[in-house]
Amino acid sequence: MTERLDTLTSRTVARLTPWLLPALILGGWQAAVSFGLVSNRFMPAPLDVARAGIEAARSGELWTNLGVSTLRALAGFAIGGGIGFALGLANGLSPRSERLTDTSVQMVRNIPHLSLIPLVILWFGIGEEAKLFLVALGVFFPIYANTLHGIRSVDPTLVEMGRVYGMTNSELFRRVVLPGALPSIFVGLRYGLGIMWLTLIVAETISASSGLGYMAMQAREFMLVDVVVLAILIYAALGKLADALTRGLERVCLAWNPAYRTV
């Protein structure tokens, strides 16, 4: 009985440990502002940020901007990720397709996609297309590169086994190649999600008339430091959320792999 209680407490401790450091930082931050060590004109206290959050949520402004940003992020991700995945598959499976496109992709990859912002504004203005284009471009490369690498690293002895047992090409792809490439594809997915938020925030901060980045820029104009900090914290939460979703997906899809089965 006590033993079971012990494992229960140890499990609770294990689950809470990752949050210890963020909690300490928040506490220290609140204390520093409360005791006047830091001027709240530059750094508002956590409680002020929370208050700003509640106010923005109540007025509906937060939800509209959050919704607009999320929609942009997902649409850009779907476009860029979809193209990257398809091209990665094509180049992983067909040497001819790879000879044709891979060199070009590698050249474009070395251009930081955010450096295209001035050009993109010239092309698309500050409309939705500009943001979608940048997010799609940023997400494309990690998904492409990791899908390609995943397919390349599929164990050739398993492919031979599949052929010996009479699998057709589509069966071979579905049962051997794709599952074998999946761990690497997930790595690409996680990188892609990170780049998705980063790109969107930069794009919205520079040129937008709605969205989280726009909200933060507006707040800066009016010296509303608490709203600026609120926006930054929301980015952190969104990034963490995307990562947690991918982890959950990995645990379901890669349950066979001992490296993912723990926890």
Binding site: T157, L158, E160, M161, G162, V164, Y165, G166, M167, T168, E171, R175, V176, P179, G180, L182, L254, W256, N257
Partner: peptide
């Protein structure tokens, strides 16, 4: 053929790995 390595699909459970022998 039985190879030197088992060459099982790591992402398929044991029963499904055996069923690979009946592909098609």
């Amino acid at each position: 053929i039985m190879f030197q390595e088992p060459r099982l699909l790591p992402w398929a459970r044991v029963l499904d790995n055996v069923a690979v022998g009946l592909t098609g």
